[in-house]
């Protein structure tokens, strides 16, 4: 049985192809101005990689912001539901998930089957939290991938950023840079501020059970370490934290197919 999940987010598009219970192929590409095309592009890439054609895929589920503009999907499901399912697939014991994407951030609680029992979204002004790392990356002229590591190597002292608002955090960062603060210290402040906001969110859903971080931010060791410290739990992170939603979508596809086949019998 072969199913696929397509996750069209605000910043990236992802596809996962699942054969029975095994990931055959996956891909992540940046979302272009046309999200249908992004979906198509990332889907075709993944098909090719798996050596399959469209006809081989028995069921396609789309998720993410752009889930309704994926013309070839059989069904669309919200990203909160898919994230819980995907996290449960990677780590069956998980009960608490933090998903942090480009435009928003969610805390999700789920049961042993990966069903959502409670969730909270970031409040309005913290919406650009994930985006703030990109902005910092530009301001500090540091590749995203290096930011976390550098933030753990504080040179003088952490430069505190207190604003929840991304636009104002920018101003604060510029202020520090103009004063000659070392960029690592500013990065440390940025990661700390992000971890603080995430912690607020997780407290609201309740901190309990095995913990998973998904989404792009899971790749930032500086943020992850600080969240772990605040939450008091070790974070489980799968080999590619950005595909958790797409994987969850594919898993849903498989479930739907299984039900259909069962009915036929």
């Amino acid at each position: 049985m072969i199913t696929a999940g397509v996750d069209v987010g605000s910043l990236t598009g992802k596809t996962v192809i699942l054969k029975d219970n095994e990931i055959l192929a996956w891909n992540i590409i940046p979302t272009g101005p046309d999200s249908s095309e992004t979906a198509k592009e990332v889907f075709d890439m993944t098909l090719k990689q798996a050596g399959l054609t469209m006809e081989d895929i028995e069921y396609i589920v789309s998720t993410g912001y752009g889930r309704v503009v994926v013309p070839f999907s059989n069904k669309n499901i919200t990203e909160i539901t898919c994230h819980a399912k995907g996290a449960n697939w990677f780590f069956p014991s998980v009960r608490l998930i933090l998903d942090m994407g480009g435009q928003d951030c969610k805390g999700i609680r789920c049961d042993d089957t990966g069903k959502v029992t409670n969730f909270a979204m970031n409040d309005k002004c913290a919406a650009g939290a994930g985006r703030s790392m990109e902005i910092m990356s530009g301001l500090l002229d540091t590749p995203l991938a290096e930011m976390g590591g550098l933030s753990l190597d504080i040179k003088n002292r952490l430069a505190p950023l207190s604003s929840t608002c991304v636009v104002f955090a920018r101003t604060e960062v510029l202020g520090y840079l103009h004063e000659g603060t070392h960029k690592n210290d500013v990065l440390a402040g940025a990661c700390e501020a992000l971890a603080d906001r995430v912690y607020t969110l997780l407290k609201r859903v309740g901190i309990e059970g095995d913990f998973v971080i998904s989404g792009g931010i899971a790749k930032n060791i500086g943020v992850v370490k600080r969240i772990e410290q605040k939450v008091g739990l070790k974070a489980n992170i799968c080999f590619e934290p950005q595909i958790v939603g797409a994987l969850g979508a594919a898993v849903f596809g498989r479930g739907i197919l299984e039900k259909k086949t069962a009915k036929k019998k």
Partner: peptide
Amino acid sequence: IQIAEEEGFSR
């Protein structure tokens, strides 16, 4: 204030 927000109080 942060603690109150963690309790779920809106800004």
